[in-house]
Design a protein around this nucleic acid. Structure first.
Lengths: 192, 192
DNA sequence: ATGGTTATGGACTAAACAGTCCATAATGGT
DNA sequence: ACCATTATGGACTGTTTAGTCCATAACCAT
């Protein structure tokens, strides 16, 4: 019926995501987006409408990808092992150098962009929730001590993760992050 | 002998700092800088050379100001009280909404700008050091338990602070941060 | 008060920016 | 094979960007 697209939308979104993730929104130019996605200007505008809309869709995809990864990483029945593993993965995972796109946008865009503030906030809340559920599960099956305040510890882990993301992006020494994570994880073990 | 400047250099730097702190480097235009400092273009370029050099000087001033504030906040002889107070101050302090400029630049500029990476890294190290010294002092005068690993806990506090800065900029609910800080501070109290 | 010196307003530039538009290319159904 | 439809390359636009430059203004020592 009509001429077909010669690109895959999700593929393009992932390439755009990597760029925005690495450089931020403002510092990523349309020219760069065109170059790394391989799209022409018309195709990009026809398909996504504007730089901002492209960004929003890329960011949504990031949130989904990351949440899927986190949920899967936390799926181990032993909650302590699950959480330990999740935190250690952050040091060597895919976006090891780039930190977390949500943390990046929390700093770059959230303060002056209500829409993004909301997207960032909801992502942080989702992270808190998946941590909380993991902790509840651990309390139930005995892999974490019963006295833990699940919500409080979940918030502790969520904010801790953002600290790690900042340090990663600043290229902090590995030992600093290892020390940090080891102290964070002690919180899950200690007797009161 | 010659026509005098009709502005105070440090005053201008502080105004520029506030702008860069709030909006980041790229998103702050020269036009805005001129408007809020009141300088003319010629004066700004004559005095500071370029947008980047102005930014660097503003950032240096920020680092100095903040380190002075932190050192003073930690001067209380009781190290536990000193640290408690320092963390609680972050919630209501001056740049309450804007987070920490160093954390902001860690995310915006450090990954692609070696000079800034270095400035950010050294700031984080200085924070770690002032925490460490406070902890050592606490161990000596009995306000903290002797078993603490000062460097490790100092790193824990440093990274924790960056987590808080991200959340503040994302306008996280106060209770989330209060929960976080309360867990962080427990680390200073607990028996092993 | 005049001259040497620096500060400053404002016109100017070149490049980069996001975004628009249209003529043409490529397709698949008939 | 042709038509209706959508995709695309590339020319084009208006704005904003950081930065330059020069003629003039303001000052202070003499």
């Amino acid at each position: 019926m009509a001429r077909p697209r010669n690109f895959d939308e999700e593929d393009v979104l992932r390439k755009a995501m990597a760029l925005f993730w690495s450089k931020g929104y403002e510092s990523t130019s349309l020219a760069e987006l065109l170059q790394t996605t391989g799209l022409s200007k018309s195709s990009l505008y026809e398909t996504f409408g504007s730089k901002r809309e492209l960004f929003l869709r890329a960011f949504q995809l990031y949130k989904k990808d990351r949440m899927d990864g986190l949920t899967e990483g936390l799926s181990h029945p032993d909650a302590y092992l699950a959480l330990t593993n999740a935190f250690k993965t952050v040091l060597d995972g895919k976006g090891s150098q780039m930190g977390c796109m949500t943390a990046n946008e929390a700093i770059e865009l959230a303060p002056h962009d209500p829409k993004l503030q909301e997207m960032v906030e909801s992502d942080f809340y989702n992270i808190e929730e998946v941590f909380r559920q993991t902790i509840e599960r651990g309390k139930e099956n005995g892999s974490l001590r019963a006295g833990l305040d699940a919500r409080k510890i979940a918030r502790f882990l969520t904010v801790s993760l953002q600290g790690i993301n900042v340090m990663i992006r600043a290229q902090a020494k590995r030992e600093v992050l290892e020390d940090f994570i080891s102290v964070v994880l002690e919180k899950l073990n200690e007797r009161e």
